[in-house]
């Protein structure tokens, strides 16, 4: 029976495709949250495979903080145009302009928490009943407790102590009016799985993931890129460094790592030997031990 064994990547792919097809079958108006990072690119790639030769039956939405790396936005537009899908942008700047949220101030200010408001606004305005995201359980402790189909009340809130049990591969997407779901097709993937899959499938990525020369400075041990939205203290000296990014979030809170890895093979080697989690470069998770849990309860994905 050895012949009828799948490799771990094929099994994970098969599981994710199954979940994406369940979303298309069970929901009326699903949206795929696309940030231009490797996890959401992987989700988009899986969605293309799940419905081939038909088009992806989901709208794509980018929750735009306005603090993105320019490379991310450039890649987003290029990639989605190639996929032939519709993109909606829900902007944090709009929420700020409308007075829905107040921006944090200071050198470590981040728009991360404000994303939740823009996300919920986008979901509400477009009447999306399911939002697909590229979150993985291995990323963070609170995410380890997530379901594939994560039920949210009519305020978009997550109740971690009272989640629906998820049995076998039966997904219960039934809901009352106003309630919605967050869907995580790559829940069971690790950072390493993602990189191996990207290599195997030859998936295109923003250039930020590969080693490049960049103007950076050091803040509290984290390598930060200089840029329009990144305020610098006078003592924070800028220098050219050879870096890459393990995750892509806002410029204001995503740290780079020193790296010479300029190919997927080298990145995989680097990931295999690294001793720090990928969110270790994200200052938004370091605010408190339950930072992610608190944001998720409020509706963050």
């Amino acid at each position: 029976m050895q012949a009828y064994n799948l490799s771990h990547l094929s099994e994970l792919e098969s599981e994710a495709i199954y979940v994406l097809r369940e979303v298309a079958a069970q929901f009326e108006n699903p949206v795929l949250l696309f940030s231009g990072g490797k996890d959401s690119i992987t989700c988009a790639h899986l969605a293309r495979k799940a419905f081939w030769p038909a088009k992806i039956p989901f709208t794509f939405m980018h929750v735009d903080t306005g603090h993105n790396f320019p490379e991310t936005i450039e890649f987003r537009d290029y990639y989605l145009n190639k996929l032939g899908v519709n993109l909606i942008v829900s902007s944090v700047q709009d929420c700020i302009n409308q007075g829905l949220v107040i921006e944090e101030k200071g050198f470590n200010a981040s728009r991360n928490a404000l994303q939740t408001v823009a996300l919920l606004k986008g979901v509400e305005e477009n009447k999306f009943d399911a939002a697909i995201g590229g979150a993985r359980r291995d990323e963070e402790k609170a995410r380890a407790k997530e379901r594939f189909f994560s039920h949210r009340d009519d305020f978009g809130q997550w109740d971690p102590k009272n989640q629906r049990p998820e049995l076998w591969n039966i997904f219960n997407g039934k809901k009352n009016l106003g309630e919605s779901f967050r869907i995580f097709p790559i829940s069971n993937w690790t950072e390493m799985d993602i990189w191996q899959y990207i290599l195997k499938e030859k998936i295109e990525l923003p250039s930020l993931y590969f080693s490049h020369e960049r103007e950076c400075f050091i803040r509290e041990g984290v390598v930060m890129s200089t840029g329009e939205h990144v305020p610098q203290r006078p003592e924070e000296a800028t220098a050219k460094m050879s870096v890459r990014f393990r995750t892509i979030g806002d410029m204001t809170c995503t740290g780079a790592v020193y790296s010479d890895a300029d190919s997927l093979e080298k990145i995989i080697e680097e990931v295999a030997s690294t001793r720090v989690t990928e969110r270790g470069t994200r200052s938004d998770d370091k605010r408190s031990e339950a930072a992610m849990e608190d944001r998720k309860k409020q509706g963050y994905f």
Partner: peptide, 16 residues
């Protein structure tokens, strides 16, 4: 993983 779990030293939900 959850705040309540760490506070009470117990595990509440299935974690992966």
């Amino acid at each position: 993983g959850l705040r309540a779990e760490r506070e009470q030293g117990i595990t509440i939900d299935v974690a992966y």
